[in-house]
């Protein structure tokens, strides 16, 4: 799979094989290690695990795609799965508004995959 990295100088994505940025000319240091899975404010550990699962599944399946967001409709679903019960909350995770929390237990074996659609439980 082709890999891109962000240029430190101009923030443009460039191929990891580049020695200098084709957009701003900045010298690029040796390619960094594979990027850690994203830590996005508001995501719980379970949510990030779900993203990882989706990424692994999609890359294994098709080799090039990744969780998308659609042209219209609702934002990604990040639903806690069983693993969330044991997960420590993220220090920076946004707490769900009281009116947004659900009293229902997570779907059995829900194994939430974040693609698109609306998020029932943003804080996990």
């Amino acid at each position: 799979m082709t890999q891109l990295r962000a240029c430190d100088a101009c923030s443009r994505h460039v191929f990891v094989t580049e020695s200098s940025c084709p957009f701003c000319g900045a010298q690029l240091t040796a390619a960094p290690r594979a990027r850690a899975l994203p830590i996005f404010a508001g995501m719980s550990r379970a949510q990030r695990m779900a993203i990882a699962a989706a990424a692994v599944a999609s890359q294994a399946a098709v080799g090039c795609s990744q969780p998308p967001v659609p042209h219209y409709g609702a934002p990604p679903i990040f639903e806690p799965d069983a693993a969330a019960d044991a997960a420590q909350p993220d220090a920076g995770a946004a707490k769900p508004d009281a009116s947004m929390s659900t009293s229902e237990p997570p779907d059995a074996g829900g194994g939430a995959i974040p693609i698109y659609g609306a998020s029932p439980n943003p804080g996990g």
Partner: peptide, 18 residues
């Protein structure tokens, strides 16, 4: 799109994931 696994967008997922 920094929240995506690669840190950037990919291609179309029609018929792949959706």
């Amino acid at each position: 799109r920094g929240y995506m696994p690669s840190g950037h967008g990919g291609s179309c997922s029609a018929g792949q994931l959706t």
